[in-house]
């Protein structure tokens, strides 16, 4: 018998009413007396189903409705219409059993008590979630294993670095053993090493506990490393739901062939290479070309025939580019993320 889904969303919509004010003194005075409102549809007829233990990445440009969706799933925002069930509960009812089975980590906000060491927050959460002492000790030991908390959790939070704080933040969110874990940009602002550590931790945690994991991130690497399945949301609408690889393949059915030539050999033959596919990069000893999937075999054969190849790799185009293309194709030229990767 199939397990009931961990998350079930049917036709979810959320409309906000926002107050609008033009700049300038006159508008400021005018808004004292009459305010104009406009309706903004943050989430528009969204449906999806996520099985227990799945790891899903929410992708989309800024303001696409990812965070709103996440907050609806966590029961923080009431939907305007539609049905939502998470771990068998209706989130907006905020039943104790529901709240005990989820956790939300927000990279830009923190729940740790600022003036006290993180251990105090842990103890507080233990009392709030009513976790038995022995379970609590065991979980803390496990988290310590994965995150190396012991060195930092005794210092007042305000003295911790951003990375250390994030580790403790994760621990505080996971001490009650949530079955569904929502992560809103958990690696934002962290350096590369720390991003890697957080990613590894999340994967190990999900493997160990079988928890369902929903992630939004601006760093495509987070998504690639953690989420086999992605959900693309743009302007509140579902654009894509499925396998990450399939997504790249549908949007960009091309492959990239990167070739390194022997330094002592002849220079690359530009005309010959251009005949094979679109040139992304061409230097004295290095060339990157983009070719349709079915042409990869022929292209490689010809490259080997015409050049003194030292090394050759075939890869998918970077996810940033895939996303850019996806959003551009609806007439929306916004990039997938503000600081995205190398341009072709």
């Amino acid at each position: 018998m199939a397990q009931p889904p961990a998350i079930e969303v049917r036709s979810l919509s959320k409309v906000f009413r926002v107050h609008e004010r033009a700049p300038g003194l006159r508008a400021a005075v005018a808004s004292l007396f009459r305010r104009t409102y406009k309706e903004v549809t943050a989430v528009d007829d969204l449906s999806l189903s996520i099985a227990p233990g799945e790891r899903v990445g929410f992708l989309g440009p800024n303001g696409a409705g990812k965070t709103t969706t996440l907050k609806v799933l966590a029961g923080l925002i009431h939907p305007t219409s539609g049905h939502v069930r998470v771990a068998g509960h209706v989130p907006q009812r905020r039943e104790t059993a529901f709240l005990e089975s989820i956790a939300l980590v927000m990279g830009q906000k923190q729940q740790l008590l600022w003036d006290l060491p993180p251990v105090e927050t842990f103890a507080l959460n233990r009392a709030i979630y009513d976790v038995p002492q022995d379970v609590f000790a065991q979980r803390l030991a496990e988290l310590d294993d994965l995150l190396g908390l012991r060195a930092v959790s005794g210092k007042p939070t305000r003295q911790l670095s951003l990375g250390e704080r994030m580790k403790c933040e994760l621990a505080a969110a996971l001490l009650h053993g949530p079955r569904v874990l929502f992560l809103d940009e958990p690696t934002i602002g962290l350096d590369v090493a720390m991003q890697l550590a957080v990613r590894e931790f999340l994967r190990a945690y999900a493997d160990r506990t079988g928890a369902t994991l929903i992630l939004t991130s601006h760093y495509m690497d987070d998504v690639v490393a953690l989420c086999p399945r992605v959900v693309v949301i743009d302007k509140g609408r579902l654009r894509y739901d499925g396998d990450l690889r399939t997504l790249s393949r549908t949007v960009r059915p091309d492959k990239r062939i990167a070739m390194r030539l022997r330094a002592d050999g002849p220079a690359p033959d530009r005309a010959a290479i251009e005949r094979l596919g679109e040139v992304v990069e061409l230097e004295a000893t290095r060339a990157v070309i983009q070719v349709p999937q079915e042409g990869v075999r022929d292209a490689i054969a010809q490259l080997f025939a015409s050049h003194d190849v030292a090394d050759l790799t075939v890869e998918d185009p970077p996810l940033e580019e895939v996303m850019r293309e996806l959003f551009a194709s609806t007439g929306d030229a916004r990039a997938a993320s503000p600081g995205d990767g190398p341009r072709a």
Binding site: G24, L25, A28, V29, S31, L32
Partner: peptide, 12 residues
């Protein structure tokens, strides 16, 4: 002063 005045008006 002008910006400050607008700010003062902003919250009725």
């Amino acid at each position: 002063l002008r910006v400050g005045f607008a700010a003062a008006l902003a919250y009725r």
